[in-house]
Design a protein around this nucleic acid. Structure first.
Length: 752
DNA sequence: GTCCTCACG
DNA sequence: ACGTACGTGAGGACC
């Protein structure tokens, strides 16, 4: 994109045309390096309205950038974009910032503009004046160089009974990361950093020396000195994302307990309101933007690891993190109770940390040979398909490019019904290609082959190839990481790699699971909740027919179909059952006529009739939905059976956002309650299976996977099933039974 | 970096 | 008139 293009007659591809919006202006500034350079080029735009709006928005962004001095300018630019203002309107900006409770930013911008700062209501709980009163001073942090200095800190920690801890390492992957240094904080503003393995890197010899920097302590001496405190029941260890630090310490022979976690405190109280990373929390609650890590590490190819950061810089950065963590903890702890989040935090989030840490460190064995063989087979098939596809298309092109596929199908071959999205590109998703393939017209064969190719490309790049990269050379296993505070609903999210989306729905994809194997003499056991979300819906919405069906162990989709379409169960056809199943899921997702129609590929009118009939037969569902929306509108949150709150700040918004917010609000208590159930099962599991030669390895939302000695598999299965089925108790007595299906085998494909 | 696509529950 | 099924993460194209 450049200014010349913007100056052209066609405005079709310009976001925000005919004016030039904040977002486009931000992108252009990025493109042109800085505002001055862009404005110089903007003169060339002939169309006055577009020229003027670009100039104004660029000015607005410049003003904002000057005011906040953010390292990451684009972040602010896009904050401005959220305003969706086409004209720079300081009033709207300030109102938005007020709504988002960006106090400092709003105040500074108001000052600069010479207007009254907007009135922003203070948070429910006043920040502790002592915490707020202590300024952040990077020069006040102590560089701990010897045992005497460290002992002073240990004495202070023991006297206090708590300490904020943060580790600095060489990598984000805890299983490959080496410990570089440790920071501690005991009071706001009072923090230290203990450097351990920083390299002595002269500026002109950045990567040359492996010599250690001066003024550091011996790692094992420090760990030996810290161990009594880190393992002391009477000393609370506070961290931000403690699972990370706990794993680092565990790999260094120290088991940290008890722990508190500021990220999880924030998540328990405020899921759905904002994210829970330290930078966001610090800015929000402490009015302080932490020292960014980027300038210290660099980025891209020239990025360095933390052990190459000069110690004097590391002290300021690392100690500040511990300082911030401690301040956040002192703010959050008393607030937890008022936000009614104590139970969720204490029974689910906090106890989950050591459980997940164990699972992640255990990892799952993956057979590289199996993946490698499959990868080669996929490559061969793809090559054959590629030739076929180019032949059908009459030209060579990049099959991985949706844009090129769209042009060939719709422009070159003249397939009807091509739809362009908001970026002006044809949609070529699987649903579109499936329709074209089914039509049998021009391009049908091509679309079908592209679908085949895409499936293989996905399996190869995301699974057979990428998974091999994740096999830890030391353990021969794959160690995923679970984000506890990732999903608003209470679900976990698996990353690096994501082991919660390993293929299963197609035969070809399912074979990837053959590469996930049990160690010698062991088997994998998989246990999954049957229909947990529908059971929870039946309970929450109190639907007698559904509850009774679950109690009798009936086929719930067939039962729904029978009820809705008045077909006796013994005359049920797969087609009718399929429709009922889609409706059942639709209900969980906050059904809409449009969505159901798209899913079932039926006319919208018909879909709406299904929904109407469903509500007629199950009026309790309608009531649940209405009540949930009403509750959400009043409180701006919804909650699960266990009291987990999921905030829904958009629920009272108008416009297209409203629909999303409503459906999410309907779904959240159901999905969230299911998430609570399995979280509770996971928390109880270690003690229950302690006597068995078994390890819990993976969680996939409604499924737990264990690795167990062959001889103990039956025991493990019974024990784990009992824990899972009884997980809601005693907090919640469900009016439907939870049932758990189990399987076992030498690999995940067999076990599932 | 963003968009599109697609894998899972 | 318009266009949404809920919740996620990752890879590749493209700018």
């Amino acid at each position: 994109m450049d200014v010349q293009a913007l100056a052209g007659d066609s405005v079709d591809n310009i976001p925000g045309a005919p004016g030039i919006g904040v977002k486009t202006a931000a992108l252009l500034i990025n493109e042109y390096g800085d505002v001055e350079n862009l404005l110089a080029h903007a003169e060339e735009i002939k169309q006055p309205k577009r020229r003027q709006s670009l100039q104004e928005n660029a000015e607005l962004i410049r003003l904002s950038r000057e005011l906040v001095k953010l390292d990451c300018d684009m972040e602010l630019d896009f904050t401005l974009c959220d305003l969706e203002v086409k004209e720079p309107d300081p009033e709207k900006l300030l109102a938005f910032l007020a709504e988002m409770e960006f106090r400092t930013l709003a105040k500074r911008i108001a000052e600069k503009l010479g207007v009254e700062p907007p009135a922003i209501p203070e948070p429910e709980v006043e920040p502790d004046p002592e915490i707020a009163a202590v300024p952040f001073d990077p020069d006040a942090y102590e560089w701990v160089k010897d045992a005497d200095a460290l002992q002073v800190w240990l004495d202070r920690i023991n006297a206090r009974g708590w300490v904020a801890v943060d580790t600095e390492t060489t990598a984000l992957d805890e299983m490959r990361a080496d410990l570089v240094g440790i920071s501690l904080a005991v009071e706001p503003g009072q923090a230290c950093y203990i450097p351990l393995t920083h390299k002595a890197s002269a500026t002109d010899d950045l990567f040359g020396s492996d010599e250690l920097a001066e003024g550091q302590m011996d790692p094992s001496q420090v760990l030996d000195m810290l161990r009594p405190v880190l393992e002391d029941d009477a000393v609370m260890k506070v961290g931000q994302n403690m699972k990370y630090d706990a794993k680092i310490f565990a790999r260094n022979g120290v088991s940290v307990a008890p722990i508190d976690d500021t990220m999880l405190l924030s998540y328990a109280m405020h899921a759905g309101l904002h994210n829970h990373g330290m930078d966001a929390l610090s800015e929000r609650y402490l009015d302080h933007i932490p020292i960014p890590i980027k300038p210290l590490l660099g980025s891209g190819k020239s990025a360095i690891t933390f052990d190459r950061v000069p110690v004097k810089d590391a002290v300021k950065y690392a100690a500040e993190d511990a300082d911030i963590t401690l301040r956040l903890w002192e703010l959050f702890k008393p607030r937890l109770h008022r936000e009614k989040a104590t139970t969720i935090y204490e029974t689910e989030e906090r106890p989950l940390v050591p459980v997940l840490a164990e699972m992640e460190m255990a990892g799952v064995k993956v057979d590289r040979e199996v993946l490698s063989r499959m990868s080669n087979a996929f490559a061969q098939k793809m090559a054959a398909l590629e030739a076929e596809i180019h032949e059908l298309a009459g030209q060579e092109f990049n099959i991985a490019s949706p844009k090129q596929i769209g042009e060939i199908l719709f422009d070159k071959l003249g397939v009807e019904g091509g739809k362009k999205g908001k970026t002006g590109a044809y949609a070529t998703g699987a649903d579109v290609l499936e329709d074209i393939a089914a039509e049998g017209g021009p391009g049908a064969e091509l679309a079908a082959r592209i679908l085949d190719w895409r499936q293989l490309a996905k399996l190869k790049s995301t699974y057979t190839d990428a998974l091999q990269e994740h096999i830890n050379p030391e353990t021969g296993r794959v160690h995923t990481s679970y984000m506890i505070a990732g999903a608003n609903t209470g679900r976990l999210a698996s990353t690096d790699p994501n082991l919660q989306n390993i293929p299963v729905r197609t035969e070809e994809g399912r074979r990837i699971r053959e590469a996930f194997v049990a160690d010698e003499g062991k088997v994998l056991v998989s246990l999954d909740y049957s229909q947990i979300e529908l059971r929870i819906l039946a309970h929450i919405a109190d639907i007698d027919a559904l509850k009774e069906a679950f109690r009798q162990g009936l086929d719930i989709h067939a039962m729904t179909a029978s009820e809705m379409f008045e077909v006796p169960l013994d005359q049920m056809t797969p087609e009718i059952r399929r429709k009922a199943k889609a409706i059942n899921f639709g209900v969980i997702y906050g059904i809409s006529g449009y969505g159901l129609a798209r899913n079932l590929r039926i006319p919208r009118k018909e879909a709406q009739e299904f929904i109407d009939r469903y509500f007629e037969r199950f009026p309790g569902i309608r009531a649940y939905m209405d009540n949930t929306i009403a509750f959400a509108k009043q409180h701006e949150y919804v909650q699960t059976l266990f009291g987990r709150r999921i905030h829904t700040p958009q629920i009272n918004a108008r416009g297209p956002h409203a629909g999303f917010a409503r459906r999410a609000a309907i779904n959240a208590p159901i999905q969230g309650t299911a998430a609570d159930v399995i979280r509770r099962a996971m928390v109880k599991m270690p003690e229950a299976i302690a006597g068995l030669p078994a390890k819990m390895l993976l969680q996939v939302h409604d499924e737990l996977i264990f690795e167990v000695d062959e001889a103990a598999a039956t025991d493990l299965e019974a024990t784990a099933r009992a824990v899972m089925e009884g997980a809601p108790m005693p907090a919640v007595q469900l009016s439907v039974p939870l049932t758990v299906d189990a399987g076992r085998g030498k690999n995940w494909a067999e076990a599932h």
